[in-house]
Simulated assay, not measured.
Amino acid sequence: MKSQLAIALALSAVTTAALAGPIEEQIRFRQSAYSFLGWNTAKIKAQAVDHPETFNKDQVIAAANAIAAAANSGILEQLYGPGTDQGTGWKPTRLKPEYFQKQAEVKELEATFIKEANELQKVADDGDVADIKAQFGKLGASCKSCHDLIRVRE
């Protein structure tokens, strides 16, 4: 719980700085936040899906806690300021301009992501690899749904 608070506070500080800065900074912060999520999901995928023989419960719990903390922080949606569908952060943004017209759908997908992240956190704490793998698939599906709606494919 202490690590979740630290992650949420760090994300909050980053978001405050991002919203105050130029569009390019906002895009960089958003790209960094999703890289952080991707790094943690990759740890779970490697240990629960691809190579369960390497499963380390403590590492999977830490990754699931980080994902849930970011999901529940309320910060991610703040990284989509007006104009951030154009420009370059670390690389060109992949946010579709339609994002700003699809807020109801985005909110619904966000709620699903939060629900699945919280469930992954619970399942990871129990430590059953098969359950983690199944819940990880649900989390991944929630991510894909959002990508399909608002993210330009590379």
Rank of each mutant, 00 (worst) to 15 (best):
K57E: 10
W39Q: 02
N56D: 10
I67V: 15
F29D: 02
Q86P: 15
I23Y: 01
F55W: 04
I75D: 02
L95K: 15
Q86L: 09
F36S: 02
N40L: 03
T15E: 04
F55N: 07
P52K: 04
L11W: 01
Q26W: 02
G87E: 06
K45S: 15
G21C: 02
S12N: 13
T15I: 11
N65V: 11
A62S: 09
A46G: 13
F55G: 05
R28T: 12
T41P: 03
K45Q: 13
I44W: 01
R28M: 12
A17E: 03
R30A: 09
T15V: 14
A6H: 04
E53Y: 11
E25Q: 11
K91Q: 09
A17Y: 08
A42F: 06
D58P: 02
F29I: 11
P92D: 01
Q26M: 09
N65G: 04
A20H: 12
A71S: 15
E98V: 15
K45A: 14
W39T: 04
A18Q: 06
L11D: 04
Q47C: 06
G74Y: 05
A63H: 09
K96W: 14
G74S: 12
A63W: 00
L5C: 05
Q103L: 15
I67F: 03
K45P: 03
I44Y: 00
P97V: 14
A71F: 07
K57N: 05
N72P: 00
A70W: 00
A104E: 07
A17P: 11
G21M: 00
I27M: 10
G87M: 09
I27N: 10
